[in-house]
Each structure stands twice: as C-alpha cells, then as structure tokens.
Simulated assay, not measured.
Amino acid sequence: MLAPASRNKVSRWLAGASVVAFLVSLVLPAYQTNRYGHLHNHSGLEAFILGPIGLFAGHISWAANAVLVLSLAKRTSPHYGLSFVLALLA
C-alpha cells in the first residue's frame, strides 16, 4: 500500500496524463466514413460533440466520457477506490 503522500503524487500524475490523453484524442481522427467513394475523416472533437445523440440510439460508448470525469472528481475523496473502479469502467 502506498503512503498517502505517494498516492497523491501518483494520483495527480495519472489524472494529468489522463486529461492530456483526452485532449489529444479530440484533435486526432476518430473515425472515417465513405460516402459515394469519398473518404472523410472525422475528428475526436466532432465525435465528442455529436456523441450524446448516439445515446438515443442505444450507443452507450460516449457515456465513458462522463464516467471518466466522475472518476477524476472522486480521486481526492476518502473513497478513492471508487475512483479506480470508475476509471476502469471508463
């Protein structure tokens, strides 16, 4: 078991790395469509903005964004184990 000071340092580093990875994913291509023989790349930001619409069609993968934010918010609470479980779910 890590000491509280070490756990906080690791927690801050992992949270920062998670936020950086999320921000980078917004500028990278997320998926590609082929419409009448023309390929079009869609950015992660486009997928992030339009993702909630998919919830109405039963596509729940976008909900991982909300679970990740909740995990980051819970990392400083006394029940930090919940943060770990939420991060794994995301």
Rank of each mutant, 00 (worst) to 15 (best):
H38I: 02
G54Q: 14
Y36L: 06
A63R: 11
H42Y: 10
A30M: 13
N34E: 08
I49W: 08
L68C: 06
V27K: 04
T76R: 11
N41F: 02
V69G: 04
S25D: 08
A73W: 10
G58S: 11
I53T: 13
G16D: 00
H79G: 00
I49M: 08
S18M: 08
A66V: 15
A66N: 09
S71W: 04
E46S: 07
G51L: 06
I60R: 12
N34I: 05
S71G: 12
V19Y: 04
V69H: 05
F84G: 00
L14I: 09
A21H: 02
F48M: 10
H38K: 02
A47F: 06
H42Q: 12
H79V: 00
F22Q: 00
Q32K: 12
L82G: 03
H79N: 02
H42L: 10
A73P: 00
P29D: 08
W13T: 08
W62F: 15
G16M: 04
Y31R: 14
A21L: 09
G16P: 04
A17Q: 02
S43W: 12
S18V: 04
T33W: 02
G58V: 13
F48I: 05
A66H: 10
L23T: 02
H59P: 06
Y36W: 04
P78Y: 01
L55I: 14
A30G: 07
A64F: 15
A30L: 09
R75H: 12
V24W: 06
S18Y: 03
Y31A: 10
R75W: 08
L50N: 11
S18H: 03
H79S: 03
V67L: 15
L70F: 11
N41P: 03
I49Q: 04
H38T: 01
N65S: 06
S77P: 01
Y31E: 12
F56H: 13
L28K: 07
A57S: 15
P52A: 12
V27I: 14
V67Y: 13
A64W: 15
P29G: 11
A21S: 07
A47E: 15
Y80H: 09
L39Y: 09
R75M: 10
N34Y: 06
V20R: 01
H38V: 01
I49C: 05
V19K: 00
H79R: 02
G58Y: 10
L72N: 05
L26A: 07
V69K: 04
G81P: 00
Q32Y: 06
A17T: 07
I60C: 14
I53L: 15
L14E: 05
T76W: 14
L39F: 09
K74F: 10
Y36S: 05
A15W: 01
I53W: 12
I49F: 05
S83R: 03
H38F: 03
L28A: 12
H38L: 00
Y36A: 05
N34F: 05
V67G: 10
Y80A: 09
L68H: 13
L45Q: 03
T33Q: 02
L39W: 07
S61C: 08
L45R: 00
W62R: 09
W13H: 02
N65H: 14
L14M: 07
L23W: 05
F56W: 15
L70V: 10
G37N: 03
V19I: 14
F56I: 13
P29Q: 13
T76N: 15
L26I: 09
N41D: 08
P78C: 00
L70C: 11
A17Y: 04
